[in-house]
Simulated scan of single mutants.
Amino acid sequence: MHEPDPAHLIDLSDVGRTYDDGPAALSGLNLRVRRGEALAVLGPSGSGKSTLLNLLAGLDRPSTGQVTVDGLRVDLLSEAACAKYRRSHVGMVFQFFNLLDDLTVLDNVLLPAQLAGTDRAGAAARAGELLDRLGIARHARARPGRLSGGERQRVAVARALMNRPPLLLADEPTGALDSASGADVRELLRELNAEGQTIVLVTHDLALAEACATRTIELVDGRIARDVTAAVTR
C-alpha cells in the first residue's frame, strides 16, 4: 500500500476515474502537493480538471487508486465522514459564487461554522475578522445580490476560509468577473498563499495561474502532460 508523505497535504496515488462506458476522466494520476503550495490546474474541457477537484473535495470517489488529504484517506470515508471532512478540511470557491441570496453577507460567511457546530460568539468573531480583512465589513448586513461580482467573490472566499481549512479549492474563481474584479481576486489569492494557505485552483485564466500559482500542471485526457514549478520570486 502506498504510504503518504506527511510533508504533502495532498497525495494522489495511481488515481483513475471512469464513468459508465466512457473514456477515463482521470487515468493513473500521481500527484503530490506540498503544504503551502498554490497549484494551478490547466487543461482543455474534458481533461479531468473538475473530476480532480471533486475527488479532493470528497464529492466523488476514484474508480482506482488512493486520495489522501491531510493524512485522511478521502476515498475510504463514508458519506457522513465526507461531509465532516469538507466542513473541517476544505474551503470551496466557485465561478458563480454559490451564495444564498436570502441571507445577509454575514450569515453566508457564518454558515460553515454553524454547520460545524461552532459556538455563535466564536463564529461571529471569526466572520468579523474575515470580512474586515477582505475589505467587505461594510457589507455585512447587505444581501449578496446588491454587491458587485468582485465583492461577492470576496464573500465566497470569506465563507470558504471560515473554518480555517488546510485546503482551499477554487473552480474558475475569476471566470464570472470583469477584468478589474478578476485582478482583485488574483491579488487576494496570491496574498492568501503568501500567508501559507494551500490552494488548488482550476482555471482557463493564464494571468490567474501566473499571478497566484507556485506550481502549474496541465491535464490532457486525464493525465498530467506538464508539471512546472514557478520561480521563487513571482
Rank of each mutant, 00 (worst) to 15 (best):
I224H: 07
A124H: 05
R152Y: 06
A211P: 00
V105N: 02
V90H: 08
S179R: 11
H89S: 14
A127Y: 07
E195M: 05
L189I: 13
G149K: 04
N163M: 03
D11Y: 08
G222Y: 11
L39D: 07
R17A: 15
V185I: 15
A207E: 10
P62E: 12
A38D: 02
L103Y: 02
T104F: 01
N108H: 01
T118W: 09
L219R: 10
E191K: 15
S50Q: 04
V232N: 02
L31F: 10
N108R: 00
D14N: 13
T51Y: 05
S13A: 14
N98F: 14
A124S: 05
D178T: 00
L189D: 10
G122Q: 11
R126C: 05
G48A: 07
V228E: 13
L12T: 05
G175L: 06
L26R: 04
D221I: 06
L42H: 04
L100E: 02
A160T: 02
G145T: 12
P165A: 01
S148C: 09
V200H: 02
A194P: 03
N163R: 00
A124K: 11
A207L: 12
S88T: 15
G182V: 03
P173A: 01
R61S: 13
D107N: 13
T214N: 10
L206N: 08
P44F: 09
V200I: 06
G222W: 11
N163C: 00
L55M: 04
H8Y: 13
K84H: 15
L115E: 14
R143H: 12
Q95Y: 10
R164T: 01
K84S: 15
